[in-house]
Simulated scan of single mutants.
Amino acid sequence: MDISEVQGTVADGFEPVREEFAAAVDWESGAQLAVYAGGRRVVDLWAGDGVTGDTLTGVYSATKGAATLVVALLVQDGAVDLDQPVAHWWPEFATAGKDRITLRDVLTHRSGVIGVDGGLTAAELADDRVIARRLAGQRPYWRPGSAYGYGAFVTFAMVGEVVRRATGRSLQEHFEERVRAPHGLDLYLGLPEALEDRYREVLPGLASPEELAAFWADVPGPNSVTGVGYGLNSTPPLDQVAFINTRRVRALGQASAGGVGNARALAALYTAAVFGLDGQSPLLKPDTLGEFAMLHSTGRDLVTGDAGQYALGFQAKGLRYPMLSANAFGHNGSAGAESFADPLGGIAFGYTRRRFSFDWSYPEHGRLVAAVHRAACAA
Rank of each mutant, 00 (worst) to 15 (best):
residue 49 D to M: 12
residue 198 R to I: 10
residue 362 Y to Q: 12
residue 338 E to P: 08
residue 231 G to M: 05
residue 200 R to T: 09
residue 40 R to S: 12
residue 69 L to Q: 00
residue 35 V to I: 08
residue 377 C to M: 08
residue 234 S to P: 04
residue 55 T to D: 02
residue 63 T to W: 01
residue 259 G to D: 07
residue 257 A to D: 14
residue 273 A to G: 02
residue 155 T to I: 09
residue 84 Q to M: 12
residue 258 G to R: 08
residue 312 L to I: 14
residue 246 T to V: 10
residue 258 G to N: 00
residue 334 S to L: 14
residue 218 D to N: 09
residue 294 M to D: 14
residue 153 F to V: 14
residue 2 D to S: 14
residue 208 S to F: 00
residue 125 L to C: 04
residue 124 E to N: 06
residue 325 S to H: 09
residue 84 Q to R: 14
residue 44 D to R: 00
residue 112 G to V: 01
residue 16 P to R: 02
residue 290 G to M: 12
residue 97 G to R: 09
residue 145 G to I: 08
residue 100 R to S: 12
residue 271 T to C: 12
residue 179 V to F: 04
residue 318 G to L: 07
residue 197 D to P: 06
residue 81 D to L: 05
residue 185 L to C: 08
residue 65 G to Q: 04
residue 184 G to P: 11
residue 152 A to L: 11
residue 276 G to R: 02
residue 376 A to R: 13
residue 342 D to M: 08
residue 76 Q to G: 13
residue 240 Q to C: 10
residue 128 D to I: 00
residue 273 A to F: 05
residue 85 P to D: 09
residue 246 T to C: 07
residue 321 Y to G: 04
residue 348 A to M: 06
residue 175 F to V: 06
residue 171 L to I: 03
residue 34 A to V: 02
residue 290 G to A: 15
residue 267 A to G: 03
residue 341 A to F: 03
residue 192 P to R: 05
residue 244 I to M: 11
residue 288 T to P: 06
residue 102 T to Q: 02
residue 85 P to W: 05
residue 68 T to Q: 02
residue 157 A to W: 00
residue 218 D to V: 10
residue 148 Y to Q: 11
residue 342 D to W: 04
residue 48 G to D: 07
residue 291 E to W: 02
residue 292 F to Y: 10
residue 279 G to P: 02
residue 203 L to Q: 15
residue 251 A to L: 13
residue 124 E to W: 00
residue 269 L to T: 10
residue 206 L to V: 15
residue 206 L to F: 12
residue 43 V to D: 04
residue 28 E to V: 10
residue 254 Q to F: 06
residue 166 A to R: 09
residue 42 V to D: 03
residue 96 A to S: 13
residue 202 V to N: 12
residue 318 G to A: 02
residue 5 E to F: 14
residue 360 W to F: 13
residue 302 L to R: 15
residue 57 T to P: 00
residue 90 W to R: 10
residue 258 G to E: 01
residue 226 T to R: 04
residue 40 R to Y: 00
residue 218 D to W: 00
residue 50 G to M: 05
residue 186 D to H: 14
residue 341 A to I: 10
residue 304 T to D: 13
residue 41 R to Q: 15
residue 341 A to K: 12
residue 111 S to I: 01
residue 338 E to I: 04
residue 344 L to V: 13
residue 256 S to Q: 08
